[in-house]
Amino acid sequence: MTPTQASAGALDAGAEVLPREDFVVTTSTEPVAKRPARQRDHAAGFELSGPGTPLPALLSTLWRTRQVLFVLARKDFFARYRRTSLGLFWALGLPLIQAVVLTVVFTHVVRVGRVVQSVQGGHHFSYAVFIYSGIVGWSFFSTNMPGSATSVVDGSGLAGKIYFPRLMLPLLVVVTGLYPLIISLGVLFLLTLALQHSVGFEFLFVIPATVLVVGISAAFGIALSALHVYFRDVKFLVQAVMSVLFYATPIIYSLSNAPASIRPFISFGPMAGPIELFRMATVGADSAWPQAVAGGVVWFTVAMALGLYLHSRFDRVFVDRL
């Protein structure tokens, strides 16, 4: 049947159609016909009988649709630099400028390095590298946390139309954040090389450090994004906690600088573990690093368990409250 005949057929059925030449459809549809016969995609089907989704089903759907995560993350990252004249330079430039400022300030203006060094086992290191290795992990956490906590609510436009595991929304924020993190790690490497004059195999500690900081951020994001749907206060709570946590995390000081009375709390902070691992890769970690890393693993486990529980329970009904 030619397209013209097809449209004439539709008209006979009583369509309200103006008999004008340009309304006759002439699109070629051969390629569709050439496609192999359809196979029903049973794997994409679903059966819904209540709000809960079993966790294995949720995770297998997530795995099956993982490509979406990376396509969207790439889109989100690169779209940020659209219509800027310097483009991607900003992604590299910002951490670079930050590193230079830190170097200038802490080697020429504020010479607090000695205070930190005196308790860090006495060996000589660059305070700028010390701070920057703290900043790398912290800024990943602090810039992505607010966005991932509100991600399910923010994604309601798409989520109301099409199903995908809602877990994907907080994960998307974290995965998008990997791009600037990787750039920052490169800058950290250069900064260490420039100021410490040598980078050894210990720099490979950035790998477990990255894994831990990304894992904790993802776990927090998953848990908070679910809570935020029901308690919108979460958004502001996150902002409040972040400003406190900056000082309660050994970023500008070392764990050993903290008074003994509050040191256990600080070393148990969610970001203390990853930051100590970043230090280990560059200037050497504080002696209390094992507690800090263990604390990080505990935070990860608890938040992830809570997050996965909430998502498997409410995955298909979040949309009712958006």
């Binding site: 089907g45 059966e47 009904v317 949309v319």
Partner: peptide
């Protein structure tokens, strides 16, 4: 679309 789950009964969709 599978975007929201029913409060009662069963929705069964076999396919994408």
């Amino acid at each position: 679309a599978g975007v929201t789950a029913p409060s009662s009964g069963v929705v069964h969709v076999d396919g994408r």
